[in-house]
Amino acid sequence: MQSRIAANAHALRRWLAKAEETLGNHSDRLNAINIFPVADGDTGTNLYLTVRAASAAAAAHEGADAGAVMAAAARAAMEQARGNSGTLFSVFLAAFAEPLAGQQRLSGPLLAASLHRGSIRCWSALSDPMPGTMLSVLEASARGAATAESAQNGDDSNHALALTLDAAVDSAREAVVLTESQLGPLTAAHVVDAGGVGLLLVLDCLRSAILGTELEEALLDSLSGYDVQDPHLAATLPADTGVEVMCTISLTPLAAAGLRMQLDELGDSVIMSAVSEQADDTGGYPWRVHVHVPESELALDLIRTAGDPSNVSITALNAATADAHGIP
Rank of each mutant, 00 (worst) to 15 (best):
L106A: 06
G41N: 00
G86N: 01
T87D: 04
E79L: 15
E98M: 06
A71H: 13
A74N: 01
M78G: 04
A64Y: 01
S55A: 15
M78V: 14
A95H: 00
P99G: 04
F96K: 05
S85K: 00
A66F: 03
Q103S: 10
M70Q: 05
Q104P: 07
G63T: 07
A68K: 08
L47D: 07
P37K: 01
A64N: 15
V69M: 13
E62N: 11
M70T: 05
F89T: 10
P99D: 07
Q104R: 15
N84S: 06
S55W: 12
Q103G: 01
A32N: 08
R82L: 12
A39Y: 08
Q80S: 15
V38L: 08
E98F: 09
S85P: 08
A74T: 13
L106F: 12
Q80Y: 10
L30W: 10
A60P: 06
A94K: 05
A57H: 11
L93P: 04
G44M: 05
S90L: 02
A73G: 14
A76C: 12
A59N: 13
A95P: 02
D42A: 11
F36I: 10
R75E: 13
A71E: 14
H61Y: 14
A66G: 09
D40G: 12
A94G: 15
A60N: 11
N46A: 11
T43R: 01
P99E: 07
Q80V: 04
R75K: 11
A56F: 11
F92N: 01
A58G: 13
A54Q: 03
S85N: 09
A97D: 03
P37G: 04
A57T: 03
A73F: 08
Y48D: 01
R75Y: 01
P37C: 06
R105W: 11
V38K: 07
A73P: 06
I35H: 06
R75W: 10
F92G: 06
A76W: 03
P37Y: 07
G83V: 05
I33P: 01
N34R: 04
A73T: 05
Q103P: 09
D42T: 08
A72W: 03
A73N: 04
L30I: 05
E62C: 07
L93Y: 05
G86W: 00
A60K: 14
A73D: 00
L49D: 13
R75L: 15
D42I: 06
I33F: 00
A39E: 09
L49I: 09
G83E: 05
T50S: 12
L47M: 15
Q80L: 12
D42P: 01
A32T: 00
S85I: 09
E62I: 07
P99F: 08
A94F: 02
S85C: 05
H61T: 15
G83S: 07
N31Y: 05
G102N: 08
L88Q: 06
R52T: 13
A58M: 13
I35C: 04
G44W: 00
A60L: 12
A68L: 11
R29H: 09
A74S: 08
V91R: 10
V38E: 00
A39S: 14
L93M: 12
A68H: 13
R52N: 12
L49N: 14
G41P: 10
N31I: 02
A57C: 08
